[in-house]
């Protein structure tokens, strides 16, 4: 059976974020390079039909940060789900280069694992790290995101059917009813991760034991808001969700029915639903000690060239007053 491959998060930094960082650096942080809490957010995966070729083009699996990311109490935009992270701005490029990234990463994964094992809280499953160096004189911002994700050993596999469209998975009427009903409930109470049982009730993941107490395994579904729109790859959040399920409920999670929720709006026709369903399996780990230990994690964002290296946002064309003056006609 093929191994489940997850579409990694891709960072999207709004230019306004850099503007906010600039003023924060000058007015508040100054020379401090303390780690600060930060909030990013992601939305449902989107795809678009190319009008010329008629093919479906999938847009990226993005986690974005904007100017409001620095404010602790900010509300995510409507339809978006928050992801908490830690942000560290370095004063010099040398510090940025020399930063102990492994230690930062381990610290974050340790924190995530703690919250899974002790508090059983799903809110830290989408944690991320952002390190930056701002070259304010040249309007250049060096940055590197990490989206830590626990590696399952052995890996999750999906059965031969792969990720099917949710409306094909069920009979016509029930699919329509089920999906519309989930849509309405998620709109009322947005949950990044949720459980679905027959009768179309949804509940937070934290209530797994009681909610599925009398439900046969075949009727249990675990759903998550999927920032990926790729037909073959579920989004990154699922990975930590599966790690969470394995860690807390090892006995009952050898086989799981997963719903990748991708519908922001109720489509006009039944065929328009984009959510996907798949059944994933995993085998018990080889030795019992490994089952309770913190799994290793991956997640530093790669550059477009596929290298593990930081990225640069060059905002001089949009910020440098001299270049703006040249641009003006």
């Amino acid at each position: 059976m093929p191994i489940v491959q997850f579409a990694p998060f891709a960072s999207l930094v709004q230019p306004a974020f850099w503007h906010e960082l600039t003023s924060l650096k000058i007015d508040v942080l100054r020379l401090s390079d303390e780690a600060l809490p930060i909030t990013g957010y992601y939305t449902l995966g989107r795809s678009i039909t190319d009008r010329e070729t008629g093919s479906e083009i999938v847009l990226g699996c993005n986690l974005s940060v904007g100017p409001e990311s620095f404010h602790k109490s900010s509300q995510p935009p409507s339809g978006a789900f928050p992801a908490k992270g830690h942000f560290k701005n370095f004063n010099t490029i040398e510090d940025f280069k020399a930063a102990d990234k492994t230690a930062l990463f381990n610290q974050e994964t340790e924190r995530m694992w703690e919250s899974i094992v002790t508090t059983r809280d799903t809110s830290s499953l989408n944690s991320f790290i952002l390190i930056t160096y701002a070259d304010l004189k040249k309007y250049k911002y060096y940055y590197w995101f990490a989206f830590p994700s626990f590696v399952a050993k052995p890996a999750w596999e999906i059965d031969e059917l792969g990720w099917k469209l949710a409306n094909e998975d069920l009979s016509h009427d029930s699919a329509c009813f089920l999906l519309t009903s989930i849509h309405a409930q998620l709109r009322a109470t947005p949950l990044p991760f949720f459980l679905v049982r027959a009768g179309v009730e949804i509940a937070p993941i934290e209530s797994y034991a009681s909610f599925f107490a009398n439900v046969p395994p075949a009727e249990q579904t675990i759903g998550f808001v999927d920032p990926s729109a790729s037909p073959t790859n579920p989004g990154w959040p699922l990975r930590n969700l599966l790690a969470y399920m394995r860690a807390i409920y090892p006995a009952t999670t050898g086989e799981l029915r997963i719903l990748c929720w991708r519908d922001a709006d109720v489509p006009a026709a039944l065929a328009g639903w984009k959510s996907r369903v798949g059944i994933v399996h995993t085998a018990p780990p080889a030795d019992a000690a490994a089952a309770v230990a913190r799994p290793s994690a991956v997640g530093w964002e790669k550059t477009p060239q596929g290298k593990l290296a930081p990225r640069v946002a060059d905002l001089a064309p949009m910020m440098d007053p001299v270049r703006l003056a040249n641009q003006a006609v």
């Binding site: 191994i3 489940v4 491959q5 997850f6 579409a7 990694p8 280069k97 990234k101 492994t102 990463f105 590696v151 399952a152 890996a155 999750w156 790729s230 073959t232 790859n233 990975r239 290793s296 991956v298 530093w300 290298k307 593990l308 290296a309 930081p310």
Partner: peptide, 16 residues
């Protein structure tokens, strides 16, 4: 010299 090789061990088979 910013590329870091030692950061993650090997290729991760579950990353798309």
């Amino acid at each position: 010299d910013m590329e870091e090789d030692g950061l993650e061990e090997g290729e991760d088979e579950a990353t798309a």
